[in-house]
């Protein structure tokens, strides 16, 4: 378990390097989410996005990136909303250990 000090006041990991699958489960639990294979697929995709673009995606690029990588069925906001309710880009990034997307205007 990561100590509370590992997180910022909004629950985002302060250091990318602290992230592990267990950390993801811990963050998800705090958000009342039980991670399934479908969640993990998006979490991995978010981490790939971060490696490729050095940033966390806003909703629009996340949907496009999902569509390009996982197909049109999963590249839809309704699908992402079903996994990460409310704000999928923000919540997904949080669980994936990424910084808060800074383009959520």
């Amino acid at each position: 378990m990561l100590a509370p000090a590992a997180f910022d006041p909004e629950g985002f990991l302060r250091n990318l390097e602290d992230w592990t699958p267990d950390a993801a489960r811990q963050i998800a639990a705090a958000e009342q989410i039980t991670l399934t294979a479908a969640h993990w697929e998006i979490i991995e995709l978010l981490r790939d996005y971060y490696r490729e673009f050095d940033s966390s995606p806003a909703m629009r690029p996340l949907v496009k990136y999902c569509a390009a990588r996982l197909g049109a069925d999963k590249g839809r906001s309704i699908y992402l909303m079903s996994l990460f309710p409310g704000s999928p880009a923000k919540l997904g990034s949080k669980i994936a250990g990424l910084p808060k997307p800074d383009n959520c205007l």
């Binding site: 490729e52 673009f53 050095d54 940033s55 995606p57 806003a58 629009r60 690029p61 496009k64 990136y65 383009n103």
Partner: peptide, 15 residues
């Protein structure tokens, strides 16, 4: 610091 080249690469995803 943030990688400007990589940030630029993401712009098409933003339309």
């Amino acid at each position: 610091v943030k990688n400007i080249g990589r940030l630029l690469a993401s712009l098409p995803l933003y339309g």
